[in-house]
């Protein structure tokens, strides 16, 4: 595998390969240590982190659906202080490329989080803008160009780390939201977050999730994700990270061909904990088989 160069640069974030694990699907990486070398991954995007600890939503929180699953975890996490004291030292000593996913309900919260996370051992920040903005009547930041510009530009002022903005697919025109994030100073974009969905039990006539609605992930959403990555990659100059139903190296390659400079493995981690490592090997094997020496030859190589 030494003959292929898998390194990519994501808006100043240097990765040894383009395979990251998606926030909320891989814990803090530590949970998966028995399945592979965390340091061999492009990076780990840790569980969505908030200023204060959050207990999360009442159960039932997950349900299996056709070729996928719905979740409504409700951002359960121990808060930024616990992360910095407990998990970051472990990740730092393991040498893991650590990206922290930030969640908040106001611009001020995001800014404070970003400031607190300017720490050695944190390689980049990922901004989850699918959260409701309490000051805008609970409207998700990621659904309005104006709110996206505001939160991204403010967070940039409080952070010198590369900032990846994670886009919500639950919008009318994702390319315009992407352009708003880019204009506000985002260093890279990651997409897609989960698609809002719902499951109902016809026998009890009740919703299955405690939160009634939840985020759909898994292979079921891959075609939607691929289309959005392709549209966004054409609309912006900054690097794009593809996410959505990636189970295999073939899936990852399709996103890269559509313009993604890196990818995140999400729900696949739940089903096959070695998926991310298998995908790295599969990408390298594909490049070799196709006589390529550098992953960058493949990025955005879609022919229409």
């Amino acid at each position: 595998m030494s003959t292929v160069d898998l390194r990519v640069n994501i808006g100043g974030l240097q990765l040894k390969n383009p395979v990251l694990t998606a926030s909320g699907t891989f814990g803090y990486g530590i949970e998966f240590q028995s399945f592979g070398d965390l340091n061999a991954l492009g990076g780990v995007v840790v569980k969505g982190t908030t200023l204060e600890p959050r207990a999360g939503n009442p159960p039932q929180r997950v349900v299996e659906t056709a070729a996928g699953m719905l979740n409504s975890i409700g951002l359960e996490n121990p808060g930024v202080d616990y992360f910095l004291e407990h998990y970051l030292p472990q990740l730092r000593s393991l040498g893991v490329t650590t990206i922290v996913n930030m969640a908040g309900n106001s611009v001020a919260e995001y800014c404070e989080l970003a400031e607190r996370l300017q720490q050695p051992g944190i390689a980049a920040l990922e901004l989850n803008i699918s959260c409701p903005n309490v000051k805008a009547g609970g409207m998700a930041f990621g659904t309005s160009e104006k709110l996206v510009e505001e939160v991204v530009s403010q967070v940039k002022e409080h952070s010198r780390l590369p900032l990846i903005v994670k886009l919500s697919p639950n919008v009318t025109d994702i390319a315009r939201i992407a352009q708003a994030a880019e204009a506000a100073g985002a260093d890279a974009l990651s997409l897609i977050n989960t698609l809002l969905g719902m499951a109902v039990d016809h026998r009890t006539r009740r919703p299955i999730l405690g939160n009634v609605v939840g985020g759909l992930s898994g292979p079921a959403i891959k075609p939607v994700a691929l289309r959005m990555v392709w549209q966004v990659a054409q609309a912006v100059q900054i690097p794009v990270i593809g996410i959505g139903g990636i189970m295999t190296a073939a899936d990852a390659l399709e996103f890269i061909i559509c313009g993604a400079s890196a990818i995140q493995v999400g729900a696949a981690n739940f089903v096959e904990p070695v998926a991310a490592w298998q995908i790295i090997d599969g990408i390298a094997a594909y490049l070799k088989e196709n006589g390529m020496t550098d992953i960058k030859q493949l990025i955005g190589s879609l022919e229409i």
Partner: peptide, 15 residues
């Protein structure tokens, strides 16, 4: 409990 991973990552199976 309903769970996805069983490894403490998905945080789906709470009581």
């Amino acid at each position: 409990a309903y769970m996805a991973c069983g490894l403490g990552a998905c945080l789906g199976c709470v009581v």
